[in-house]
Design a protein around this nucleic acid. Structure first.
Lengths: 195, 195
DNA sequence: TCGGCGGTAGACAGGTCTGTCTACATCTCT
DNA sequence: AGAGATGTAGACAGACCTGTCTACCGCCGA
């Protein structure tokens, strides 16, 4: 328990839980120290400043999200069905009590300056999600993939917002049907054509 | 100019600008004092604690939002067109550089506890927006007004999120077409094609 | 003329936060 | 065995934050 790797992991796991639940500014280094059971110097050796810890946490969260999403769709060859799968999963996730919204959105809100590292990492992540949705929209045969990808992105972020604001049982459960409507309207205008 | 009412107004206006731009925790009472040009005791006479100022600011913002929205649609008798008007206006607003997202969402994020007054006020506001959208959906003849209202709400919050995260020129401009697609699909079988 | 009142200016107390520093323990590799 | 990296415990500095308090100032009405 005193070895390097597990100390770092312990810090990151504790920070993840606290940052996600209470926010970045609200959680002090001392709290992370106390709850993770490591010494202050150990934390500051691994993460020279609190911002470094925040950035490391965000990158870790991003990796976890991508793993979640790509695992979801890896056995489904059809792009349209991949999109629908994603939004069913988003709906399920967003109405769960464990979902407290999107931690990247929280980072962008708490650190509004675009040149702040946390904002920059969050923005990069959101851009990549938008790009992936747009790519899937293109593969699914949308006439205007940017329009569909953008609309789907709005729905997803709306769902995370609803989860944070309303808690479980919010209108975030509507995200799957709404996404299917957007997808259908973007693709089905012309008869389904094998690509 | 040193009378009570204008001092209070001056404080609220300054607080609005600073809270909206930098966040609630990031802006200290001392900064509001300095920028509004009033004395500390004057602020604390009008608002016994910082939380009281935050709540007063949120209520003021809510009133401004409702004034904006109801003015938008007051000359349009048709509920469906009212919804479309709203989402055109949301799209315009969200891509403007002055739009820094939704201040109520920021409040809910910075004060995650549901019993915190700021979170409670923000939640009440969001509930009333959802109710209004659902009511308009019903008046517009949606088969499932809760579903359409919920979907539209997701889009709107997605647009505010995009504005904060990406800045002007985000995919928030897609919110109008996406809303029209949802509306059309919820009301009739043959949607009017979004442009 | 003078007392009271709304406001100003700013010192101050007490708390919290980030980040540093000292002193010491333990583990690994050579 | 010994060096160096890694860990713990906790005091400490310095900044900042909220909220209180005192001293003062200028205006207006009696």
């Amino acid at each position: 328990m005193t070895e390097t790797r597990s100390a770092r992991e312990q810090i990151l796991e504790t920070a993840a839980r606290l940052f996600y639940q209470y926010g970045y500014r609200a959680v002090g280094v001392d709290t992370i120290i106390a709850e993770s059971g490591v010494a202050k110097m150990t934390l500051y050796r691994h993460f020279p400043a609190k911002d470094d810890l925040i950035v490391a946490y965000l990158e870790r969260s991003g990796a976890a999200f991508w793993n979640w999403l790509e695992t979801l769709i890896k056995d489904e060859p059809d792009a349209r069905k991949q999109l629908e799968l994603i939004y069913e999963a988003v709906a399920n996730r967003a109405v769960n009590a464990a979902c407290l919204g999107c931690t990247f959105m929280a980072a962008a809100l708490e650190f509004p300056e675009f040149d702040h590292r946390a904002h920059a990492v969050a923005l990069e992540y959101k851009k990549s999600v938008l790009a992936r949705l747009t790519e899937l929209s293109r593969q699914a045969g949308a006439k205007n993939p940017e329009a569909l990808g953008g609309g789907l992105m709005l729905l997803m972020d709306g769902a995370w917002s609803a989860a944070r604001m309303f808690g479980p049982g919010s209108h975030a459960d509507k995200v799957s049907d709404a996404a299917k409507t957007l997808i259908a309207a973007a693709i089905d205008q012309t008869p389904t054509r094998p690509r």
